[in-house]
Amino acid sequence: MEYIVIIIGAVFVNNIVLAQFLGICPYLGVSAKVSTSVGMSGAVMFVMTLATIVTFLIYNYILIPFDITYLQTISYILVVASLVQMVEIILKKVSPALYQALGIFLPLIVTNCAILGVTILAVREDYGFHLLEAVVFAIGNALGFALTIVLFAGIREHLDLMDVPKGMRGAPAALVVAGILALAFMGFANLV
């Protein structure tokens, strides 16, 4: 039950993109086609879950015992960056098919603030998560990212065919559409 609440909260109520404003760059950058947005979502889910496990352990078993939590930002970003590199190398060797699907998105993920944001949120003391809850939290947020970016890509594919006023073409129209989506997601506010 607890886990379901965490997932629903992360996907609908505090949606990572539309309510927390994390991962906006890939949200606007790779949402032109549904197929690429699905690939990006897969890569995000993979890295977000792994990164949360690793950083959670580092935070609780290295940073806290040695009282060096001020190194959180620096150690987290290094973990995310090297993890992405490692995943890329391993995928290439182990599963060329998966690498084909996710490969080009992996380097982009290092600067995806959704990853770093979720890893930092997962150890925030007021959630008091233990490891499994943190993992569920990461998966929930990744699902939330996937849902919004795929939805958004679907809308954008139609938007390209529309007669949008000249000044609003491209990014401005996409941002306004994102705003309307955010408005729609506010309807989920009382879900949990």
Binding site: V13, N14, R124, D126, A189
Partner: peptide, 8 residues
């Protein structure tokens, strides 16, 4: 309280 909308 931990009943807030987001966090404590």
């Amino acid at each position: 309280t931990s009943m807030g909308y987001s966090g404590v």
